[in-house]
Amino acid sequence: MRITFLVILLSLSFSHVAYADEALQRVKIADPFIDLHAGPGDGYPIFHVIVRGDYLDIILRRTSWLKVQTEKGLQGWVSVDQMEKTLTPAGENVEFSRSTEEDFEQRDWEVGLLGGDFGGATMFTVYGARYINRGLAAELGYAEAIGSASSSQLIKLGLFMQPFVDWRVSPYLYLGTGVINVKPNATIVIPENKDNQFSNVGIGIRGYISRKTIARLEYGDYVLFSADQDTDKNLSIKEWKLGIAVFF
């Protein structure tokens, strides 16, 4: 029984190896030589050099580093920049996809995280945006503001418009609406949960940093409808926030 189990285990592990080898992509070195680093980073030492004409199998990619295996089974890491000086089995130049400013301009989705101040309370916002065209996007966000007397949760839906689509750092206008739930802290005497609708206008700038990363800074004004408990009037809250986003 134990032997059967061992055999199954062994065959499984071998079949996995066979499968893995089959799936690996192979390139031929066209540069005089390529450095093999001990790890995925410039700080790792170069422990081996592969010369022109040798083949490399690519095991995986992590950020801008590729884990490769030589024909003799030696494993190491090569930067994407160096790896582009290799040839495919068909003799063409190898190209690896990397995010560029052009991809930033053509982006379809954006997911980001912002932190800042919401009327004196510390706030975090997570959002996802879908670009309708290069200058217009719809955004869905969730925010939480934690203050000394109360904490609030916001769900918001909005549109932002950026008139200068070709700029690396570009200003935008934001227009949104949503619902805010204000919950007073347990030690405060009036424990009343309140839902209010709000509208939100904002102005900000968004800039491409590198690879898939965007920085975003925004100043906004919220109007909470009939939120003032005594007079039932609208409340205005100022907000600023700063954060980063990743685009796809």
């Binding site: 992509q25 192979r26 390139v27 690519i58 990619r61 992590r62 089995p89 063409e92 690896f96």
Partner: peptide
């Protein structure tokens, strides 16, 4: 068989 290079077949772990 001649294997064509296909970048999408490389495992990415970011």
């Amino acid at each position: 068989a001649r294997v064509e290079f296909d970048e999408s077949k490389i495992d990415v772990g970011d």
